[in-house]
Amino acid sequence: MKIKYAIILVLVIIVIGAGIGLKMFFKPHADISKLKTEFKVEASGLIEEFEQDENAATAKYSEKILEISGKLASKNKLQNGTDLLILEDEMQGVSCQLDSSWSAANQETIEALETGSPITVKGICKGYLMEIKVSPAIVISK
């Protein structure tokens, strides 16, 4: 009788363990809209910070959730269909690759965006490579 309980207990532990393992393995990517914003910044100020001290700015902002406001400098689609918004300066501004599922659900919002207008995006800052890279990102206000 005791052995039977022991076997059941071991099986239960295995199932729970496998469940946790699978859940970790299949953990979805972060949903930007639900993440808490860590920094609210102006695009121009952010660019200045990275230009002045790239290492310090990278340490401060890399992998953090930012809300960035600025002027929309360009709107493009990459070859793979990703929407690309660039704030402030087309060559050395803030380059934001939009989250693909958010983009798919908000094509009208993206189409309505006009270059030269103010915009606020929220996304994960990836660091600086000629421009500030933010991805994935979503548009939170026009």
Binding site: H29, A30, K126, S135
Partner: peptide
């Protein structure tokens, strides 16, 4: 060529 390592995207969040 230069690439930021954090910009690499994977199918699974765990892999990333």
């Amino acid at each position: 060529f230069q690439a930021l390592m954090t910009t690499f995207h994977f199918k699974r969040a765990l892999m990333e």
